[in-house]
Amino acid sequence: MLVVLGMFVLLVLPSVIGIVHDRRIDRQIREAQEARKEAANSAAATTRSAQKSSSRSTVPSTATWYADGRRSKKLVNS
């Protein structure tokens, strides 16, 4: 019975070592991804706080609307 148990341990041991190794690698990858996300979030927050908002309207001027209309007419007439 001890021989059978010893053979069972010898057959199962490589699989158990592989599973433990894979879980350790998965944990390291997960930690690295979380660290990368935190770094990206802090960089984005820094960029957002450094940007200044404009008080000007983002609506195009009348000249821009006129020029766009003229361009489209040229394309249709050509």
Rank of each mutant, 00 (worst) to 15 (best):
Asn41Cys: 06
Arg56Met: 11
Ala50Phe: 00
Gln28Tyr: 07
Gln51Ile: 10
Pro14Ile: 08
Leu75Glu: 11
Ala40His: 03
Ser61Ala: 07
Arg48Gln: 14
Met7Arg: 13
Leu10Ala: 14
Leu10Lys: 05
Arg56Asp: 06
Val59Gly: 01
Ala43Gln: 13
Lys74Asp: 02
Ser57Gln: 02
Thr64Phe: 13
Lys74Cys: 00
Asp68Phe: 07
Arg56Cys: 04
Val20Cys: 09
Val9Tyr: 04
Lys37Ile: 03
Ser72Trp: 10
Arg36Glu: 11
Leu13Tyr: 04
Ser57His: 00
Ala44Gly: 04
Ser42Gln: 08
Ser15Asp: 11
Leu13Pro: 05
Arg30Glu: 10
Leu5Tyr: 05
Asn77Met: 08
Asn41Thr: 12
Leu2Gln: 03
Lys74Thr: 01
Leu2Met: 08
Val20Lys: 15
Arg48His: 02
Asp22Arg: 10
Leu13Phe: 04
Leu2Asn: 14
Ser72Gln: 09
Val20His: 09
Ser57Ala: 10
Thr64Asn: 15
Ile17Ser: 05
His21Lys: 09
Pro60Gln: 12
Glu34Gly: 10
Gly6Gln: 09
Pro60Ile: 10
Val3Asp: 14
Lys74Arg: 01
Ser15Arg: 07
Leu11Tyr: 13
Ala40Tyr: 03
Thr58Cys: 04
Val20Ala: 11
Thr58Arg: 08
Gly6Ala: 11
Arg71Ser: 07
Arg24Glu: 15
Val12Tyr: 08
Val12Trp: 02
Leu13His: 00
Ala35Thr: 05
Ser72Thr: 02
Ser55Pro: 05
Ser54Gln: 07
Ile25His: 09
Ala67Leu: 12
Arg71Pro: 06
Tyr66His: 11
Arg71Phe: 08
Trp65Ile: 01
Phe8Val: 15
Ser15Ile: 15
Thr47Phe: 13
Thr46Arg: 12
Val3His: 07
Met1Tyr: 04
Ser15Thr: 11
Tyr66Pro: 04
Ala67Asn: 15
Val3Lys: 10
Ser42Ala: 14
Val59His: 03
Arg24Tyr: 09
Lys73Trp: 12
Val12Ser: 09
Arg24Gln: 09
Glu38Thr: 04
Val3Thr: 13
Arg27Ile: 06
Val59Glu: 08
Ile17Met: 10
Ser42Ile: 04
Pro60Met: 13
Arg23Gln: 12
Ser72Cys: 02
Ala44Leu: 14
Ala45Arg: 04
Val4Tyr: 01
Val16Trp: 06
Arg56Pro: 00
Ser55Met: 03
Met1Gln: 13
Val59Tyr: 03
Gly18Arg: 06
Ala45Phe: 00
Val3Trp: 00
Val59Thr: 03
Phe8Thr: 01
Arg27Trp: 00
Ser53Gly: 02
Ala63Met: 05
Tyr66Lys: 15
Ile29Cys: 13
Leu11Ile: 11
Ala44Glu: 09
Ala43Asp: 02
Ala43His: 12
Val20Ser: 11
Ile29Arg: 08
Leu11Cys: 07
Ser49Tyr: 10
Val12Asn: 00
Val76Lys: 05
Arg56Val: 01
Ser54Lys: 04
Lys37Trp: 06
Thr47Val: 02
Gly69Thr: 01
Met7Leu: 15
Ser53Lys: 02
Ala43Met: 14
Met1Asp: 15
Thr62Trp: 07
Arg56Trp: 00
Ile25Tyr: 05
Met1Ser: 13
Ser78Leu: 14
Arg23Leu: 01
Pro60Ser: 15
Ile19Val: 04
Lys52Thr: 08
Val59Leu: 14
